[in-house]
């Protein structure tokens, strides 16, 4: 597993999940999903502007929103992207993501 030197925060992981889904679902649907997550503020390009509650919970809800839209293959594909960014031993990931990493 390749990792960056520093463990990324939840903001970076949430951004990576949105970016991955922009490829998969297309920008409109991916941003709409992100926008529907309570406590997650994104701009028109899908860039994370603010996280207003616990980052782990927001990441879990975001993955849940993508799973609701596209099936659990969405969680699997996001996990594949995120595992290149973080060590699952060091980051407390939400269950719907951790089970795929």
């Amino acid at each position: 597993m390749s990792m960056t030197d520093e463990t990324p925060g939840y903001t970076a992981l949430i951004q990576a999940a949105i970016d991955r889904e922009k490829d998969i679902l297309g920008p409109d649907d991916a941003i709409e999903c992100a926008d529907s997550v309570d406590g997650l503020v994104v701009d028109g390009d899908g860039t994370v502007v603010d996280i207003e509650r616990d980052g782990r919970a927001v990441l879990g809800d975001l993955v849940g929103a993508y799973v609701a839209t596209a099936g659990d293959v969405a969680a699997f594909l996001i996990a594949r992207r995120l595992e290149n960014m973080c060590d699952r031993e060091e980051v407390d990931l939400p269950e719907n993501l951790a089970k795929h990493m």
């Binding site: 490829d23 998969i24 679902l25 297309g26 409109d28 649907d29």
Partner: peptide, 9 residues
């Protein structure tokens, strides 16, 4: 529509 280039589509 525009979604034709999406991976999921």
């Amino acid at each position: 529509g525009d979604r034709v280039t999406q991976e999921h589509f």
